[in-house]
Simulated scan of single mutants.
Amino acid sequence: MTVFAVEYVYDAESGQVRDAHRPAHREWLTALAGEGVLLTSGPYSDGAGALLIFKASDDAALSDLLQQDPFASAQVISAIRITEWNPIIGLLAEHAA
């Protein structure tokens, strides 16, 4: 499995819609964390987006998975950047093996 850093950029006008869908979004993320697919995630302090760290077989599989996010179906994400990441030191390094 490969580790990927995923950056969400939220639509600037989507605050109320995100608030309404946040419980389902977090439930979805919690389930993925329980499966070991999501390693960690959290929003940026300015509310403009979030960073999520996933394990997936490839970027196509990860893209398919991200389309299942309730935030994606609510259309509050204006951009997604997916980058293969190789953590070599620290808590997440063990997941790169």
Score class of each variant (00 low, 15 high):
9 V>D: 13
65 L>C: 10
35 E>W: 12
25 H>N: 04
97 A>W: 05
39 L>N: 02
52 L>A: 10
82 I>V: 13
68 Q>N: 15
78 S>L: 08
41 S>H: 09
55 K>L: 10
16 Q>M: 14
59 D>A: 13
83 T>L: 14
42 G>Q: 06
7 E>V: 01
27 E>N: 09
25 H>Y: 06
15 G>R: 11
41 S>R: 03
22 R>W: 04
31 A>G: 11
33 A>Y: 01
8 Y>L: 06
70 P>N: 14
47 G>D: 11
23 P>V: 00
31 A>R: 14
41 S>W: 01
44 Y>Q: 13
23 P>R: 03
1 M>S: 14
96 A>E: 07
22 R>M: 09
70 P>W: 13
49 G>T: 02
71 F>R: 01
68 Q>H: 14
55 K>N: 10
85 W>D: 04
81 R>A: 13
54 F>Q: 01
72 A>I: 07
84 E>I: 04
82 I>R: 04
82 I>M: 06
18 R>C: 08
8 Y>E: 04
10 Y>S: 02
77 I>V: 13
93 A>E: 07
42 G>H: 05
58 D>S: 14
42 G>F: 04
92 L>Y: 02
61 A>S: 14
6 V>Q: 06
60 A>T: 15
41 S>A: 15
41 S>V: 01
8 Y>I: 00
30 T>L: 09
46 D>C: 05
78 S>Q: 14
6 V>K: 03
86 N>L: 05
5 A>L: 11
87 P>F: 00
62 L>G: 03
